[in-house]
Design a protein around this nucleic acid. Structure first.
Lengths: 221, 221
DNA sequence: ATCATAAATAACTATCTGGTTATTTCAAGG
DNA sequence: CCTTGAAATAACCAGATAGTTATTTATGAT
Protein backbone atom coordinates (compact mmCIF):
# COMPACT_ATOMS: atom_id res chain seq x y z
CA UNK A 1 0.00 0.00 0.00
CA UNK A 2 1.64 3.21 -1.19
CA UNK A 3 0.70 6.59 0.24
CA UNK A 4 -1.27 8.33 -2.44
CA UNK A 5 -2.68 11.81 -2.73
CA UNK A 6 -6.35 11.84 -3.37
CA UNK A 7 -6.99 12.52 -7.01
CA UNK A 8 -8.58 15.86 -7.69
CA UNK A 9 -9.82 16.11 -11.26
CA UNK A 10 -9.35 19.35 -13.09
CA UNK A 11 -8.54 18.79 -16.73
CA UNK A 12 -8.26 22.49 -17.60
CA UNK A 13 -5.84 23.17 -14.80
CA UNK A 14 -3.83 20.06 -15.62
CA UNK A 15 -3.56 21.08 -19.27
CA UNK A 16 -2.59 24.60 -18.28
CA UNK A 17 0.06 23.34 -15.90
CA UNK A 18 1.58 21.13 -18.59
CA UNK A 19 1.60 24.01 -21.06
CA UNK A 20 3.19 26.39 -18.58
CA UNK A 21 5.90 23.90 -17.67
CA UNK A 22 6.55 23.08 -21.32
CA UNK A 23 6.85 26.76 -22.15
CA UNK A 24 9.54 27.19 -19.52
CA UNK A 25 11.48 24.10 -20.51
CA UNK A 26 11.27 24.53 -24.29
CA UNK A 27 12.26 28.17 -23.90
CA UNK A 28 15.10 27.30 -21.58
CA UNK A 29 16.76 24.58 -23.59
CA UNK A 30 15.00 24.19 -26.95
CA UNK A 31 12.88 21.43 -28.44
CA UNK A 32 15.84 19.07 -28.79
CA UNK A 33 17.21 19.77 -25.34
CA UNK A 34 13.96 19.68 -23.37
CA UNK A 35 13.03 16.46 -21.58
CA UNK A 36 9.50 15.14 -21.27
CA UNK A 37 10.22 13.85 -17.78
CA UNK A 38 11.42 17.27 -16.66
CA UNK A 39 8.33 18.95 -18.07
CA UNK A 40 6.06 16.47 -16.29
CA UNK A 41 7.94 16.90 -13.02
CA UNK A 42 7.77 20.69 -13.27
CA UNK A 43 4.07 20.55 -14.03
CA UNK A 44 3.61 18.17 -11.09
CA UNK A 45 1.68 15.91 -13.37
CA UNK A 46 2.09 12.32 -14.44
CA UNK A 47 3.97 12.17 -17.73
CA UNK A 48 1.15 10.07 -19.10
CA UNK A 49 -1.16 13.09 -18.93
CA UNK A 50 1.01 14.98 -21.37
CA UNK A 51 0.54 12.15 -23.86
CA UNK A 52 -3.13 12.04 -23.01
CA UNK A 53 -3.74 15.71 -23.74
CA UNK A 54 -1.15 16.57 -26.35
CA UNK A 55 -0.17 13.33 -28.06
CA UNK A 56 3.59 13.68 -28.09
CA UNK A 57 6.46 15.98 -27.38
CA UNK A 58 6.40 17.78 -30.71
CA UNK A 59 2.66 18.35 -30.64
CA UNK A 60 3.12 19.89 -27.20
CA UNK A 61 5.82 22.12 -28.59
CA UNK A 62 3.52 23.21 -31.43
CA UNK A 63 0.87 24.10 -28.90
CA UNK A 64 3.30 26.16 -26.84
CA UNK A 65 4.71 28.08 -29.79
CA UNK A 66 1.31 28.82 -31.24
CA UNK A 67 -0.10 30.11 -27.99
CA UNK A 68 2.94 32.26 -27.22
CA UNK A 69 2.78 33.81 -30.68
CA UNK A 70 -0.95 34.37 -30.45
CA UNK A 71 -0.64 36.09 -27.08
CA UNK A 72 1.93 38.45 -28.55
CA UNK A 73 -0.20 39.39 -31.53
CA UNK A 74 -3.28 39.86 -29.42
CA UNK A 75 -1.45 42.11 -27.01
CA UNK A 76 -0.24 44.24 -29.89
CA UNK A 77 -3.68 44.44 -31.42
CA UNK A 78 -5.01 45.70 -28.10
CA UNK A 79 -2.80 48.79 -28.42
CA UNK A 80 -5.17 50.11 -31.09
CA UNK A 81 -2.42 52.18 -32.64
CA UNK A 82 -4.81 53.32 -35.35
CA UNK A 83 -6.24 55.73 -32.79
CA UNK A 84 -2.89 57.52 -32.45
CA UNK A 85 -1.04 60.04 -34.60
CA UNK A 86 1.41 58.24 -36.93
CA UNK A 87 4.57 59.26 -35.07
CA UNK A 88 3.04 58.49 -31.67
CA UNK A 89 1.73 55.19 -33.03
CA UNK A 90 5.19 54.20 -34.24
CA UNK A 91 6.83 55.12 -30.94
CA UNK A 92 4.15 53.22 -29.07
CA UNK A 93 4.67 50.15 -31.21
CA UNK A 94 8.45 50.16 -30.80
CA UNK A 95 8.14 50.63 -27.05
CA UNK A 96 5.48 47.97 -26.70
CA UNK A 97 7.49 45.46 -28.74
CA UNK A 98 10.62 46.07 -26.70
CA UNK A 99 8.84 45.80 -23.37
CA UNK A 100 6.96 42.71 -24.46
CA UNK A 101 10.23 40.99 -25.31
CA UNK A 102 11.65 41.99 -21.94
CA UNK A 103 8.59 40.78 -20.08
CA UNK A 104 8.26 37.55 -22.07
CA UNK A 105 11.76 36.24 -22.66
CA UNK A 106 10.38 32.80 -23.58
CA UNK A 107 8.95 34.28 -26.75
CA UNK A 108 12.40 34.96 -28.07
CA UNK A 109 13.97 31.58 -27.45
CA UNK A 110 10.85 29.78 -28.61
CA UNK A 111 10.81 31.70 -31.89
CA UNK A 112 14.48 30.87 -32.35
CA UNK A 113 13.84 27.22 -31.64
CA UNK A 114 10.95 27.24 -34.08
CA UNK A 115 13.16 28.74 -36.77
CA UNK A 116 15.80 26.09 -36.16
CA UNK A 117 13.04 23.67 -37.09
CA UNK A 118 12.07 25.67 -40.14
CA UNK A 119 8.77 26.80 -38.63
CA UNK A 120 7.10 23.48 -39.31
CA UNK A 121 5.12 23.60 -36.07
CA UNK A 122 3.18 26.74 -36.90
CA UNK A 123 3.09 26.34 -40.68
CA UNK A 124 -0.47 25.12 -40.79
CA UNK A 125 -1.97 27.30 -38.07
CA UNK A 126 -5.07 29.08 -39.35
CA UNK A 127 -5.32 31.01 -36.13
CA UNK A 128 -1.86 32.53 -36.54
CA UNK A 129 -2.46 33.21 -40.22
CA UNK A 130 -5.38 35.44 -39.32
CA UNK A 131 -3.53 37.24 -36.53
CA UNK A 132 -0.43 37.77 -38.64
CA UNK A 133 -2.40 39.11 -41.54
CA UNK A 134 -4.04 41.73 -39.38
CA UNK A 135 -0.68 42.60 -37.84
CA UNK A 136 0.90 43.37 -41.22
CA UNK A 137 -2.19 45.22 -42.32
CA UNK A 138 -2.01 47.51 -39.29
CA UNK A 139 1.51 48.58 -40.24
CA UNK A 140 0.48 49.08 -43.86
CA UNK A 141 -2.35 51.33 -42.74
CA UNK A 142 -0.06 53.25 -40.39
CA UNK A 143 2.46 53.94 -43.13
CA UNK A 144 -0.34 55.05 -45.40
CA UNK A 145 -1.60 57.51 -42.83
CA UNK A 146 1.89 58.90 -42.26
CA UNK A 147 2.42 59.37 -45.98
CA UNK A 148 -0.94 61.10 -46.33
CA UNK A 149 0.15 63.58 -43.67
CA UNK A 150 3.45 64.16 -45.46
CA UNK A 151 5.40 62.89 -42.45
CA UNK A 152 6.41 59.42 -43.66
CA UNK A 153 8.37 58.57 -46.78
CA UNK A 154 6.49 57.29 -49.79
CA UNK A 155 6.89 53.77 -51.12
CA UNK A 156 8.08 52.08 -47.95
CA UNK A 157 7.53 48.35 -47.69
CA UNK A 158 5.65 47.54 -44.48
CA UNK A 159 7.33 44.13 -44.30
CA UNK A 160 10.85 45.56 -44.29
CA UNK A 161 9.79 48.06 -41.65
CA UNK A 162 8.24 45.39 -39.46
CA UNK A 163 11.29 43.14 -39.74
CA UNK A 164 13.55 46.02 -38.73
CA UNK A 165 11.22 47.07 -35.97
CA UNK A 166 11.13 43.64 -34.37
CA UNK A 167 14.78 42.97 -35.16
CA UNK A 168 16.09 46.11 -33.49
CA UNK A 169 14.89 44.76 -30.17
CA UNK A 170 14.81 41.03 -30.79
CA UNK A 171 18.37 40.81 -32.05
CA UNK A 172 19.71 42.80 -29.11
CA UNK A 173 18.01 40.49 -26.65
CA UNK A 174 18.47 37.11 -28.30
CA UNK A 175 22.16 37.81 -28.77
CA UNK A 176 22.66 39.41 -25.39
CA UNK A 177 25.08 36.77 -24.12
CA UNK A 178 27.41 36.65 -27.12
CA UNK A 179 26.79 40.39 -27.40
CA UNK A 180 28.22 41.10 -23.97
CA UNK A 181 31.35 39.19 -24.95
CA UNK A 182 31.66 40.74 -28.41
CA UNK A 183 31.11 44.28 -27.22
CA UNK A 184 32.77 43.87 -23.85
CA UNK A 185 29.94 45.63 -22.07
CA UNK A 186 26.91 44.79 -19.93
CA UNK A 187 23.83 44.96 -22.11
CA UNK A 188 21.05 44.24 -19.65
CA UNK A 189 21.48 46.85 -16.94
CA UNK A 190 18.61 49.29 -16.57
CA UNK A 191 20.70 52.02 -18.19
CA UNK A 192 21.67 49.81 -21.13
CA UNK A 193 18.08 48.71 -21.71
CA UNK A 194 16.78 52.25 -21.61
CA UNK A 195 19.50 53.40 -23.98
CA UNK A 196 18.64 50.68 -26.46
CA UNK A 197 14.94 51.51 -26.41
CA UNK A 198 15.67 55.19 -27.04
CA UNK A 199 18.03 54.21 -29.84
CA UNK A 200 15.44 51.96 -31.43
CA UNK A 201 12.77 54.63 -31.36
CA UNK A 202 15.19 57.03 -32.98
CA UNK A 203 16.15 54.42 -35.56
CA UNK A 204 12.58 53.74 -36.59
CA UNK A 205 11.78 57.43 -36.91
CA UNK A 206 14.84 58.02 -39.08
CA UNK A 207 13.85 55.06 -41.18
CA UNK A 208 10.26 56.02 -41.75
CA UNK A 209 10.06 59.81 -41.66
CA UNK A 210 10.90 62.15 -44.53
CA UNK A 211 14.21 63.94 -44.35
CA UNK A 212 12.32 67.18 -44.24
CA UNK A 213 10.32 66.14 -41.20
CA UNK A 214 13.48 64.86 -39.47
CA UNK A 215 15.26 68.19 -40.04
CA UNK A 216 12.22 69.92 -38.58
CA UNK A 217 12.36 67.69 -35.50
CA UNK A 218 16.02 68.53 -35.03
CA UNK A 219 15.28 72.23 -35.36
CA UNK A 220 12.74 72.07 -32.50
CA UNK A 221 14.08 69.66 -29.90
CA UNK B 1 38.04 -11.92 -39.61
CA UNK B 2 36.31 -8.67 -40.38
CA UNK B 3 37.06 -6.72 -43.54
CA UNK B 4 38.93 -3.65 -42.45
CA UNK B 5 40.17 -0.65 -44.35
CA UNK B 6 43.84 -0.10 -43.97
CA UNK B 7 44.46 2.65 -41.44
CA UNK B 8 45.86 5.77 -42.97
CA UNK B 9 47.07 8.13 -40.29
CA UNK B 10 46.46 11.80 -40.71
CA UNK B 11 45.60 13.47 -37.43
CA UNK B 12 45.15 16.95 -38.92
CA UNK B 13 42.72 15.70 -41.52
CA UNK B 14 40.85 13.61 -38.97
CA UNK B 15 40.45 16.57 -36.64
CA UNK B 16 39.34 18.76 -39.51
CA UNK B 17 36.79 16.18 -40.64
CA UNK B 18 35.35 15.95 -37.13
CA UNK B 19 35.13 19.73 -36.86
CA UNK B 20 33.47 20.08 -40.24
CA UNK B 21 30.91 17.40 -39.44
CA UNK B 22 30.26 18.88 -36.01
CA UNK B 23 29.75 22.32 -37.53
CA UNK B 24 27.08 20.94 -39.86
CA UNK B 25 25.28 18.97 -37.17
CA UNK B 26 25.40 21.57 -34.41
CA UNK B 27 24.23 24.20 -36.88
CA UNK B 28 21.47 21.98 -38.17
CA UNK B 29 19.93 20.92 -34.91
CA UNK B 30 21.65 22.70 -32.02
CA UNK B 31 23.87 21.47 -29.21
CA UNK B 32 21.03 19.63 -27.50
CA UNK B 33 19.70 18.08 -30.67
CA UNK B 34 22.98 17.00 -32.24
CA UNK B 35 24.13 13.41 -31.75
CA UNK B 36 27.73 12.38 -31.27
CA UNK B 37 27.14 9.22 -33.30
CA UNK B 38 25.77 11.21 -36.22
CA UNK B 39 28.75 13.55 -36.15
CA UNK B 40 31.17 10.61 -36.15
CA UNK B 41 29.33 8.91 -38.99
CA UNK B 42 29.28 12.10 -41.04
CA UNK B 43 32.98 12.65 -40.41
CA UNK B 44 33.61 9.01 -41.36
CA UNK B 45 35.60 8.65 -38.20
CA UNK B 46 35.36 6.40 -35.20
CA UNK B 47 33.41 8.11 -32.47
CA UNK B 48 36.33 7.39 -30.16
CA UNK B 49 38.48 9.81 -32.13
CA UNK B 50 36.21 12.69 -31.25
CA UNK B 51 36.76 11.94 -27.58
CA UNK B 52 40.47 11.53 -28.25
CA UNK B 53 40.87 14.93 -29.88
CA UNK B 54 38.20 17.04 -28.23
CA UNK B 55 37.37 15.42 -24.91
CA UNK B 56 33.59 15.53 -25.02
CA UNK B 57 30.60 16.79 -26.91
CA UNK B 58 30.52 20.23 -25.34
CA UNK B 59 34.23 20.85 -25.79
CA UNK B 60 33.75 20.00 -29.46
CA UNK B 61 30.90 22.48 -29.60
CA UNK B 62 33.10 25.15 -28.03
CA UNK B 63 35.75 24.50 -30.63
CA UNK B 64 33.25 24.81 -33.47
CA UNK B 65 31.69 28.02 -32.21
CA UNK B 66 35.01 29.66 -31.55
CA UNK B 67 36.42 28.84 -34.96
CA UNK B 68 33.29 29.94 -36.79
CA UNK B 69 33.31 33.24 -34.93
CA UNK B 70 37.03 33.75 -35.50
CA UNK B 71 36.67 33.11 -39.24
CA UNK B 72 33.96 35.75 -39.40
CA UNK B 73 35.99 38.41 -37.60
CA UNK B 74 39.10 37.66 -39.63
CA UNK B 75 37.18 37.94 -42.90
CA UNK B 76 35.81 41.30 -41.82
CA UNK B 77 39.22 42.55 -40.75
CA UNK B 78 40.54 41.66 -44.21
CA UNK B 79 38.17 44.21 -45.74
CA UNK B 80 40.41 46.98 -44.42
CA UNK B 81 37.56 49.45 -44.37
CA UNK B 82 39.83 52.08 -42.89
CA UNK B 83 41.18 52.55 -46.41
CA UNK B 84 37.75 53.62 -47.69
CA UNK B 85 35.77 56.84 -47.42
CA UNK B 86 33.37 56.66 -44.43
CA UNK B 87 30.20 56.20 -46.48
CA UNK B 88 31.81 53.64 -48.79
CA UNK B 89 33.25 51.86 -45.75
CA UNK B 90 29.83 51.60 -44.12
CA UNK B 91 28.20 50.31 -47.31
CA UNK B 92 31.01 47.80 -47.74
CA UNK B 93 30.61 46.60 -44.18
CA UNK B 94 26.83 46.17 -44.45
CA UNK B 95 27.17 44.33 -47.74
CA UNK B 96 29.98 42.13 -46.49
CA UNK B 97 28.06 41.22 -43.34
CA UNK B 98 24.94 40.34 -45.28
CA UNK B 99 26.78 38.24 -47.83
CA UNK B 100 28.80 36.50 -45.16
CA UNK B 101 25.60 35.45 -43.39
CA UNK B 102 24.18 34.19 -46.66
CA UNK B 103 27.33 32.24 -47.51
CA UNK B 104 27.80 30.86 -43.99
CA UNK B 105 24.36 29.99 -42.67
CA UNK B 106 25.90 27.83 -39.93
CA UNK B 107 27.20 30.98 -38.27
CA UNK B 108 23.68 32.14 -37.57
CA UNK B 109 22.30 28.97 -36.03
CA UNK B 110 25.50 28.38 -34.07
CA UNK B 111 25.38 31.86 -32.59
CA UNK B 112 21.74 31.29 -31.66
CA UNK B 113 22.58 27.98 -30.08
CA UNK B 114 25.43 29.58 -28.16
CA UNK B 115 23.10 32.28 -26.86
CA UNK B 116 20.60 29.66 -25.74
CA UNK B 117 23.47 28.39 -23.59
CA UNK B 118 24.29 31.87 -22.34
CA UNK B 119 27.56 32.03 -24.28
CA UNK B 120 29.36 29.86 -21.77
CA UNK B 121 31.40 28.13 -24.49
CA UNK B 122 33.17 31.25 -25.74
CA UNK B 123 33.20 33.18 -22.46
CA UNK B 124 36.84 32.42 -21.70
CA UNK B 125 38.27 32.63 -25.20
CA UNK B 126 41.26 34.99 -25.27
CA UNK B 127 41.46 34.64 -29.03
CA UNK B 128 37.92 35.93 -29.54
CA UNK B 129 38.41 38.70 -26.99
CA UNK B 130 41.23 40.10 -29.09
CA UNK B 131 39.35 39.79 -32.36
CA UNK B 132 36.20 41.33 -30.93
CA UNK B 133 38.04 44.21 -29.41
CA UNK B 134 39.59 45.11 -32.76
CA UNK B 135 36.22 44.73 -34.43
CA UNK B 136 34.55 47.28 -32.16
CA UNK B 137 37.52 49.58 -32.42
CA UNK B 138 37.27 49.61 -36.23
CA UNK B 139 33.70 50.86 -36.03
CA UNK B 140 34.62 53.46 -33.43
CA UNK B 141 37.36 54.74 -35.72
CA UNK B 142 35.03 54.76 -38.71
CA UNK B 143 32.43 56.82 -36.87
CA UNK B 144 35.12 59.22 -35.75
CA UNK B 145 36.31 59.73 -39.31
CA UNK B 146 32.78 60.31 -40.52
CA UNK B 147 32.15 62.88 -37.82
CA UNK B 148 35.42 64.65 -38.62
CA UNK B 149 34.26 64.99 -42.20
CA UNK B 150 30.90 66.38 -41.09
CA UNK B 151 29.07 63.45 -42.70
CA UNK B 152 28.20 61.34 -39.65
CA UNK B 153 26.23 62.42 -36.61
CA UNK B 154 28.10 63.26 -33.46
CA UNK B 155 27.88 61.21 -30.29
CA UNK B 156 26.82 57.91 -31.82
CA UNK B 157 27.56 54.78 -29.80
CA UNK B 158 29.52 52.32 -31.93
CA UNK B 159 28.04 49.40 -30.04
CA UNK B 160 24.45 50.38 -30.83
CA UNK B 161 25.44 50.86 -34.45
CA UNK B 162 27.15 47.48 -34.65
CA UNK B 163 24.21 45.71 -33.05
CA UNK B 164 21.82 47.31 -35.53
CA UNK B 165 24.14 46.62 -38.42
CA UNK B 166 24.42 42.93 -37.68
CA UNK B 167 20.81 42.67 -36.59
CA UNK B 168 19.35 44.13 -39.77
CA UNK B 169 20.68 41.12 -41.67
CA UNK B 170 20.94 38.51 -38.93
CA UNK B 171 17.37 38.91 -37.73
CA UNK B 172 15.97 38.68 -41.26
CA UNK B 173 17.85 35.45 -41.90
CA UNK B 174 17.51 33.70 -38.56
CA UNK B 175 13.79 34.36 -38.54
CA UNK B 176 13.27 33.63 -42.20
CA UNK B 177 11.00 30.63 -41.59
CA UNK B 178 8.63 32.20 -39.09
CA UNK B 179 9.06 35.40 -41.11
CA UNK B 180 7.65 33.85 -44.25
CA UNK B 181 4.62 32.76 -42.27
CA UNK B 182 4.16 36.04 -40.40
CA UNK B 183 4.54 38.21 -43.47
CA UNK B 184 2.96 35.79 -45.95
CA UNK B 185 5.74 36.28 -48.42
CA UNK B 186 8.85 34.49 -49.72
CA UNK B 187 11.88 36.08 -48.11
CA UNK B 188 14.72 34.17 -49.72
CA UNK B 189 14.20 34.63 -53.44
CA UNK B 190 16.96 36.51 -55.24
CA UNK B 191 14.71 39.57 -55.52
CA UNK B 192 13.81 39.48 -51.83
CA UNK B 193 17.45 39.11 -50.76
CA UNK B 194 18.56 41.98 -52.97
CA UNK B 195 15.75 44.16 -51.68
CA UNK B 196 16.71 43.50 -48.09
CA UNK B 197 20.37 44.33 -48.68
CA UNK B 198 19.42 47.60 -50.36
CA UNK B 199 17.07 48.36 -47.48
CA UNK B 200 19.76 47.63 -44.91
CA UNK B 201 22.29 49.88 -46.60
CA UNK B 202 19.72 52.63 -46.68
CA UNK B 203 18.86 52.03 -43.04
CA UNK B 204 22.44 52.28 -41.86
CA UNK B 205 23.05 55.47 -43.80
CA UNK B 206 19.93 57.08 -42.35
CA UNK B 207 21.03 55.99 -38.93
CA UNK B 208 24.55 57.30 -39.10
CA UNK B 209 24.57 60.29 -41.43
CA UNK B 210 23.56 63.83 -40.51
CA UNK B 211 20.17 65.00 -41.66
CA UNK B 212 21.90 67.63 -43.72
CA UNK B 213 24.00 65.07 -45.56
CA UNK B 214 20.96 62.89 -46.15
CA UNK B 215 19.01 65.79 -47.64
CA UNK B 216 21.96 66.48 -49.87
CA UNK B 217 21.98 62.84 -51.03
CA UNK B 218 18.29 63.06 -51.87
CA UNK B 219 18.83 66.25 -53.82
CA UNK B 220 21.42 64.56 -56.05
CA UNK B 221 20.30 61.00 -56.64
C1' DA C 1 -27.31 4.12 -6.32
C1' DT C 2 -25.25 2.87 -10.65
C1' DC C 3 -22.91 3.28 -14.70
C1' DA C 4 -20.12 5.16 -18.41
C1' DT C 5 -16.39 7.88 -19.29
C1' DA C 6 -12.68 10.73 -18.79
C1' DA C 7 -8.85 11.74 -15.54
C1' DA C 8 -5.16 10.18 -13.10
C1' DT C 9 -1.56 6.79 -11.49
C1' DA C 10 2.16 3.45 -11.61
C1' DA C 11 5.17 0.53 -13.62
C1' DC C 12 7.43 -0.84 -17.67
C1' DT C 13 10.19 -1.12 -22.18
C1' DA C 14 12.73 -0.69 -26.45
C1' DT C 15 15.85 2.20 -28.05
C1' DC C 16 19.09 5.83 -27.87
C1' DT C 17 23.12 8.13 -26.29
C1' DG C 18 27.33 10.02 -24.33
C1' DG C 19 31.13 8.12 -22.91
C1' DT C 20 34.56 4.03 -21.83
C1' DT C 21 37.51 -0.08 -22.03
C1' DA C 22 40.44 -2.99 -24.30
C1' DT C 23 43.09 -3.81 -28.13
C1' DT C 24 45.46 -3.26 -32.52
C1' DT C 25 48.11 -0.74 -36.01
C1' DC C 26 51.00 2.65 -37.99
C1' DA C 27 55.06 5.61 -38.42
C1' DA C 28 59.00 8.11 -36.87
C1' DG C 29 63.40 8.34 -34.21
C1' DG C 30 67.35 5.91 -32.52
C1' DC D 1 65.37 -3.13 -37.52
C1' DC D 2 62.97 -2.29 -33.30
C1' DT D 3 60.95 0.33 -29.80
C1' DT D 4 57.50 3.50 -28.42
C1' DG D 5 53.82 6.62 -28.42
C1' DA D 6 50.14 8.36 -30.94
C1' DA D 7 46.28 7.10 -34.07
C1' DA D 8 42.71 4.19 -35.08
C1' DT D 9 39.27 0.35 -34.29
C1' DA D 10 35.64 -2.42 -32.19
C1' DA D 11 32.77 -3.72 -28.76
C1' DC D 12 30.58 -2.49 -24.80
C1' DC D 13 27.78 -0.15 -20.93
C1' DA D 14 24.97 2.45 -17.64
C1' DG D 15 21.78 5.75 -17.51
C1' DA D 16 18.53 8.45 -19.98
C1' DT D 17 14.46 9.01 -22.80
C1' DA D 18 10.11 9.06 -25.52
C1' DG D 19 6.38 6.61 -25.47
C1' DT D 20 3.12 2.37 -23.70
C1' DT D 21 0.35 -0.82 -21.13
C1' DA D 22 -2.48 -1.89 -17.50
C1' DT D 23 -5.16 -0.39 -13.88
C1' DT D 24 -7.61 2.53 -10.65
C1' DT D 25 -10.54 6.45 -9.38
C1' DA D 26 -13.36 10.60 -9.50
C1' DT D 27 -17.38 12.73 -11.48
C1' DG D 28 -21.58 13.85 -13.80
C1' DA D 29 -25.67 12.02 -16.09
C1' DT D 30 -29.35 8.86 -15.61
Amino acid sequence: MVAQKKQVRDPEKTKARILAAAKVEFARIGLGGARVDVIAARAKVQKRMMYHYFGNKEALFSHVVESVYADFRNAEAALEIDRLEPVAALKTLVTFTWNYYLDNPELITLVNSENLHKARHIEKSKRLAVLNNAFVERMRALLERGVAQGIFRKGLDEVQILISLSGSGFHYLTNQYTGEIVYGRKLMTKAARDARLAFNIDTMLRLVCTTKYLAQLEGTP
